[in-house]
């Protein structure tokens, strides 16, 4: 019973850290796709006096990734379709050139403003409309959620590390006597810490398996029934096998640091 409790006291905080890491990885993968959609879905409107090229805009600002002309004839047809052809022709000749300019990544509001200023420096450009307010609200919500998530995971990680340090104190208390006796009889460090390493290794593997199990369940069983389109579309990236190695690596790293700190603090060495 005491042994089970000791394992749980270490596995639970380790599990919290691993869940945080995996949740962050999954969030990044899913939102990367969402971010991609926002990026490709977003364009700014460029109004020019005469036809312009992508190369011209790219020279002004490297973030411009695409340039699609908006058909002026279509605009005239929709706005003045009931007028005679001659009038439509006159309107068409007076109409400036409209373009949708796409960006290479999802950028902040300040960067959008900079792009607008850069592009408006060109003499052939009349105006650039960034649609900043709607873009801004989505972007701010997105960054806020990401910040909250990072903060929560960071907080959880700190609390968990404190719990692990507490458990290390218990380990030190429980194993110090044995390790010191073994040291007096000439046991090398690895032998006298063998028991702790075995416990820690088992705990690391268990915490990794539980984390992987939870995310596999979410991926294979919960998400298909969730009716959340974003998750259902990206079901394949919710948990990938390579995540197990990342989780195991982190878990082993934490437990080995924990065990070494206990072992080294229990070593008496030679008093000068």
């Amino acid at each position: 019973m005491k042994s089970v409790r000791n394992h749980l006291m270490f596995i639970l905080p380790l599990l919290a850290i691993l869940l945080g890491i995996e949740f962050y990885q999954v969030f990044e993968r899913v939102t990367k796709h969402y971010e991609e959609k926002l990026k490709t879905g977003y364009t700014m409107l460029v109004v020019a006096k005469k036809p312009i090229t992508l190369a011209t805009l790219k020279q002004q600002n490297e973030h411009i990734a695409s340039l699609t002309p908006i058909k002026r004839e279509q605009i005239v047809k929709e706005a003045a379709g009931n007028l005679d052809k001659q009038t439509q022709k006159e309107i068409l000749s007076a109409l400036p050139y409209f373009y949708n300019a796409g960006l290479d990544s999802y950028l902040g509001i300040q960067m959008l403003e900079k792009i607008k200023i850069d592009l408006e420096k060109l003499p052939e450009i009349n105006r650039v409309e960034t649609f900043g307010s709607s873009y801004s609200s989505v972007y701010r919500l997105f960054t806020f959620i990401r910040f909250l998530l990072k903060f929560f995971i960071g907080f959880m990680g700190i609390v968990s590390l404190l719990l692990i340090m507490k458990q290390m104190e218990i380990w030190r208390y429980e194993h110090q006597e044995r390790m010191q006796i073994m040291e007096i009889f000439g046991a090398p460090l690895m032998l006298r810490s063998g028991v702790l390493f075995r416990i820690a290794f088992v705990d690391a593997v268990m915490a990794t398996m539980i984390t992987a199990g939870i995310f596999l369940y979410v991926k294979l069983s919960w998400v298909p029934q969730s009716n959340i389109p974003l998750l259902m579309q990206k079901q394949n990236v919710l948990f990938v096998i390579s995540d197990i190695w990342v989780l195991l690596g982190v878990a082993l790293g934490i437990v080995f640091v924990a065990v070494f700190s206990v072992v080294l603090s229990s070593t008496k060495g030679i008093k000068e």
Binding site: R178, I181, F185, G186, I270
Partner: peptide, 30 residues
Amino acid sequence: LQELRKHLGIIFQDYRLINEWTVEKNIVLP
């Protein structure tokens, strides 16, 4: 020092046995 200690037998007033090990396991520690 580690090597030297393997050739020493040390006895303490407070015994310093490993309480979670059996008597037999304690004896064969060296």
